[in-house]
Structure formats: structure tokens, C-alpha cells
């Protein structure tokens, strides 16, 4: 399975970053042969994302760092047992999520992947016209225009805001949006990793995206005021 099989055009950055990456079988062979350069490559490429994902399961940055460390040690031990039924990265991430779940359980911070508390509208119903209006369910007022990315989205302040918004999300939503939109993981692999259905994943992803969009909207509305 290729990690690059992202259908969504918004996730191009991920594929671009992978261009100079060795072929999967070459990479695995080099790792098994104990080539340190190959290990450095995966360690540096994946650890940042792994930290972020681990952080969705455990309560502190320190715990997340320990989970990542523990995961890499397990990977080193188990490399010979890797059968190539999934991509190497998915295999590493599966070890990561299992390690993180165990740790989360010890810290009594389990991410319940089966509960269904994600219902209700994602946009404030007060923004739409009521049923007795000539145009029921339509916007009272359109969402305000945002500045172009050059003006806004790359700014440090926005990145801090996004990080804070992610931290505020319910665990399951944070986990899914982190894997999908921040890490650029394809949906089928996220479903497999978390053991959830496509439909369930879509609901969690949608709620998380709507929440983060709402935070950006608040921010830009605030900024636009003189």
C-alpha cells in the first residue's frame, strides 16, 4: 500500500516532501542491514509527526516523547519481523498507536474510539434563517471573506491559534484531524490504524475541521476590526 495515494488535492505537500525518498523495499533492506543513514532518515522524517499523534493519546509532552522513544526501540527490535503487508510507515504508526494507547490507559486517559457523542450541527444554527422564513435554512449573512494565505495563513500567530484549536478538540476528533490533515495520512490507513469505519472517520474529521474553521473565522473577524 502506498502512502502517497491521497485523493484529496489539498494534501499535495505530503507527496512533494517524499520525492527524494528511497523505494520501500530498498529502505527496509537498508534498515535491516543496520545502515545508520537509513535509520536517521526515517527517524528525522517521522518523529515530529509521531510526537504529535502520540500527544493525542497521552496527557503531557514528556509522555508523548517517551511513547515515541519506546516506539522506535520496538521498531528496531521488530524490524526483521516486518512482513511488508502494510507500508513501513503504517507499521511504525501502528506500533506507535498501540504504545500510546497502553500509555494512555496507564494515565487513565483512554481515547474511546467507539462512543457516539459527536452529533448536532457544526455551524451555529442561529446563522441560518428559520423554518418560517421564505428562505429556510439559508445564511442570514455569508461567512466573512478571509485574507489570502500570503496575508494571513502562514503567520506565526495563526499557527499558534491552530495548535491551540487542536488541543481544544475532543480526543477522537483531534486524533483523526491530526492524522488526516496535519500528517497527510490517507483515510483508509487512518481507519485501519484506529479501527473505525469510513463513515465514523468522516464525521469526526468534519466536526474537527468545522471547529478549527470556526476558530480561524473568529480570529480573522477580530483582526478585521479597526
Amino acid at each position: 500500500m502506498r502512502l502517497l495515494a491521497c485523493r484529496s488535492p489539498v494534501i499535495r505537500g505530503y507527496a512533494d516532501a517524499m520525492e527524494a525518498w528511497p523505494a520501500e523495499d530498498v529502505l527496509v533492506a537498508r534498515l535491516r542491514a543496520g545502515e545508520e543513514s537509513a535509520f536517521t532518515l526515517v527517524l528525522d522524517a517521522w518523529s515530529g509527526g509521531m510526537l504529535r499523534v502520540a500527544r493525542s493519546f497521552v496527557s503531557t509532552e514528556e509522555s508523548a516523547a517517551e511513547v515515541v522513544q519506546e516506539t522506535w526501540l520496538a521498531v528496531i527490535e521488530a524490524l526483521d519481523g516486518f512482513e511488508g503487508r502494510s507500508s513501513l510507515k503504517t507499521w511504525v504508526y501502528r506500533i506507535l498507536t498501540n504504545t500510546a494507547k497502553r500509555r494512555g490507559t496507564r494515565e487513565h486517559r483512554v481515547v474511546p474510539l467507539s462512543s457516539v457523542d459527536d452529533s448536532g450541527p457544526t455551524v451555529d444554527p442561529a446563522r441560518f434563517r428559520p423554518a418560517d422564513d421564505p428562505f429556510p435554512g439559508h445564511w442570514w449573512e455569508f461567512p466573512a471573506l478571509w485574507p489570502t494565505p500570503e496575508q494571513g495563513l502562514l503567520r506565526r500567530e495563526v499557527q499558534d491559534l491552530l495548535a491551540a484549536a487542536l488541543a481544544e478538540l475532543p480526543d477522537r476528533q483531534r486524533l483523526v484531524i491530526t492524522l488526516r490533515d496535519v500528517e497527510g495520512y490517507p483515510s483508509d490507513e487512518v481507519c485501519e490504524l484506529l479501527g473505525i469505519t469510513q463513515a465514523n472517520q468522516r464525521v469526526l474529521l468534519h466536526r474537527a475541521r468545522a471547529f478549527v474553521r470556526g476558530k480561524l473565522e473568529e480570529y480573522y473577524t477580530r483582526e478585521a476590526k479597526p
Binding site: 518523529s47 515530529g48 494565505p149 490533515d181 478549527v212
Partner: peptide, 14 residues
């Protein structure tokens, strides 16, 4: 745009 912005978030290295 939200998805795009998330994709641009910097990672904290090990």
C-alpha cells in the same frame, strides 16, 4: 483553506 493551513503546521523535532 483550513486543511491547507493545518498541513503547513511546523513539527517539533525529537
Amino acid at each position: 483553506q483550513t486543511v491547507h493551513a493545518l498541513d503547513d503546521l511546523p513539527t517539533t523535532p525529537l
